[in-house]
Write a protein that binds this DNA or RNA. Structure first.
Lengths: 197, 197
DNA sequence: TTGCAAACGGAGGCAACCCTCCGTATGGTG
DNA sequence: CACCATACGGAGGGTTGCCTCCGTTTGCAA
């Protein structure tokens, strides 16, 4: 699923074709991505670009060369996250239907929890976001369908419904992990078909 | 529960003692609150103060006289919302346990939906927020307890758990009201005790 | 080693926002 | 009506962030 040459059609989301080739450029590119991830987690989408460059230890000019617009930087970070999420779906595919769905949704939560900022920007429409949403759907939908076919998940829930419910849960950080667990359980119970007896 | 003189102990949250007395001042005060509500809904907590003054049709100086800090303005708007929410709990008290709880939670959602900004700030600690959180608890807790006593709501859920679950649902606006309804139903189902057969 | 395309850093001009200060206007009371 | 405490508006100084531009540095291929 990961192929050596970064440009294979149908491979990872195509934004990656952009990754620079020269050694120093590439190094800075990665540093910027990491710094941005950090800054978004702390300050939300409105994190200052100059702060990001500072964190990365590069000049502001370098940031702009790699990511001409704020949106470009944001999208690149986002794409990374989405890829990880999609990979998780593959890994869970072997489990029984409900376990696979629940496991993936938990993963979804932990991804959304650290990256509040990501959710904030999901509205903005851009081809990249559209692609990513589709990628998430392709990864998660089969899990939901399977859980519905096996009678575990309620048949009237759409994939989007489920993401909204589960994604909302961790909109704000939980001080107590046990509470996250309780709330998440309630959410999953809301998705599950009620047992007959 | 609402008393004519604004300063009675145990009456509405005491921030309101601050409301100005002169007619023009009072008018501007209200215009600023309304403008801020609007701005927060559109731009989140980081809405520009100058924009708020502009919307209200008053000078920036006037804004600062009434609300010396950003926090002051924010809190005043917030307190208004919380009061409405508390009033709703009283009004619903006559219904059967589950209906009362579910009704209040729906109200809670609609309050949170328009005011994304409010949720954003729930973390910040300040005496006013603490008071408001307590007021919300005082209003809603009894509804939950009653629904738990009657066997409708799951006994292992804390009030805070419930608010998190339901509040998260509408973190992002729903284009389709029917979807909001579906998702909300799932959330409420997660809170409800599963019927025995 | 050498040469140059590619990449780097950050100064600087511009815009938005924050908040203070003060001269002007006005509601309400005597 | 006249007075003044109260309230008003917005100019202006300071800060921060955005983004462009260009002189300097560096990877790498020949």
């Amino acid at each position: 699923m990961t192929n050596a040459d970064g440009a294979a059609p149908g491979g990872p989301i195509d934004v990656f074709a952009r990754r620079p080739k020269r050694a120093d450029a590439r190094r800075n590119y990665e540093k910027l991505l990491a710094a941005a991830r950090e800054a978004y987690a702390e300050a939300g989408v409105s994190a200052s670009l100059e702060d990001i460059a500072r964190r990365a230890g590069v000049g502001i000019g370098t940031l702009y060369r790699h990511f001409p617009t704020r949106q470009d930087l944001f999208e690149s970070v986002y794409v990374d996250e989405v890829e990880a999420l999609c990979r998780a779906a593959d890994e869970l595919a072997g489990l029984p239907p409900w376990a696979a769905l629940a496991g993936w949704l938990r993963r979804f939560v932990s991804y959304a929890a650290t990256k509040r900022a990501i959710a904030e920007a999901l509205n903005h429409d851009s081809p990249v976001f559209a692609t990513c949403r589709k990628a998430i759907g392709d990864a998660g939908q089969p899990l939901l369908r399977r859980a519905q076919d096996s009678g575990d998940a309620r048949p009237d829930a759409s994939f989007d419904d489920v993401l909204r419910l589960v994604g909302g849960v961790t909109m704000y950080p939980f001080a107590d992990p046990a509470q996250l667990e309780r709330v998440l359980t309630m959410a999953l119970d809301g998705i599950r078909v009620r047992p007959a007896g």
